[in-house]
Amino acid sequence: MSLAQHLERELKHLDAFIELLEAEHRSLSQADVDGEQLQQQASDKQTHMARLESLETQRRNALKTLGYGDTRRASEQAAIDAGCQPTWQRFLERALHAKQLNQRNGILIEARMTQNHRILRFLNDTASKTLYGPNGQARPGSRGISSRA
């Protein structure tokens, strides 16, 4: 397989990964997040990432075998020599875009987790403060419903 063909295959998988990241962002942006859907998307992301890593390893190994080395500059030179430098540039741009999308989603996930933690802490604090005594009456100083209207 030529370098150009390999890069096209990597781009195809990278574009599928980007579509998944965009779908994850839409899921995270909803008011009511579907946990099962997010879990499936996370699993799919892991699968795509493993495939992309495998393809990258194959490409790097092939370039090493051809004497190009394992640097970004060596990869660029190989693409120039193979006449597929525009594909290489598109691949780098899409990889950067995927990285940015993944970071953005990570920020959204962290914000959701922080919000959920605050809500749980509030609910735990509120639940630990008993509003009513054993006789069913509001405790003195509580904000329970009083008999005064």
Score class of each variant (00 low, 15 high):
17 F>L: 06
19 E>S: 15
20 L>I: 04
23 A>S: 13
23 A>P: 08
24 E>R: 01
24 E>I: 01
26 R>N: 10
27 S>R: 00
28 L>Q: 02
28 L>R: 01
28 L>W: 03
29 S>D: 02
29 S>T: 08
30 Q>M: 14
30 Q>W: 04
32 D>E: 15
33 V>H: 02
34 D>V: 00
36 E>K: 12
36 E>Q: 08
37 Q>E: 12
40 Q>K: 09
42 A>Q: 07
45 K>Y: 04
48 H>G: 05
48 H>A: 12
48 H>R: 11
49 M>H: 09
50 A>W: 03
50 A>N: 03
51 R>T: 10
53 E>D: 13
53 E>I: 11
53 E>M: 12
55 L>T: 03
56 E>Q: 10
56 E>H: 12
59 R>I: 00
60 R>F: 03
61 N>M: 13
64 K>F: 06
66 L>G: 11
69 G>L: 04
70 D>A: 03
71 T>S: 02
72 R>Y: 06
72 R>K: 09
73 R>G: 08
73 R>H: 13
73 R>T: 11
74 A>P: 03
75 S>Y: 04
76 E>V: 00
77 Q>P: 03
77 Q>R: 05
77 Q>W: 03
77 Q>M: 08
78 A>K: 01
79 A>I: 01
81 D>R: 11
81 D>Q: 05
82 A>F: 02
83 G>L: 05
84 C>V: 01
87 T>V: 09
90 R>N: 11
94 R>H: 06
96 L>Y: 14
99 K>T: 07
99 K>Q: 05
99 K>N: 10
99 K>S: 11
100 Q>F: 01
100 Q>G: 06
101 L>K: 04
101 L>H: 07
101 L>T: 02
102 N>L: 08
103 Q>C: 10
104 R>H: 13
104 R>T: 14
104 R>F: 11
105 N>F: 07
105 N>D: 00
106 G>A: 02
113 M>A: 13
113 M>Q: 14
113 M>W: 07
114 T>L: 15
115 Q>W: 06
115 Q>K: 06
116 N>M: 07
117 H>Q: 14
118 R>W: 09
118 R>M: 08
122 F>N: 09
124 N>I: 08
125 D>L: 11
126 T>M: 06
127 A>T: 10
128 S>P: 01
129 K>G: 08
130 T>Y: 11
130 T>C: 14
131 L>I: 09
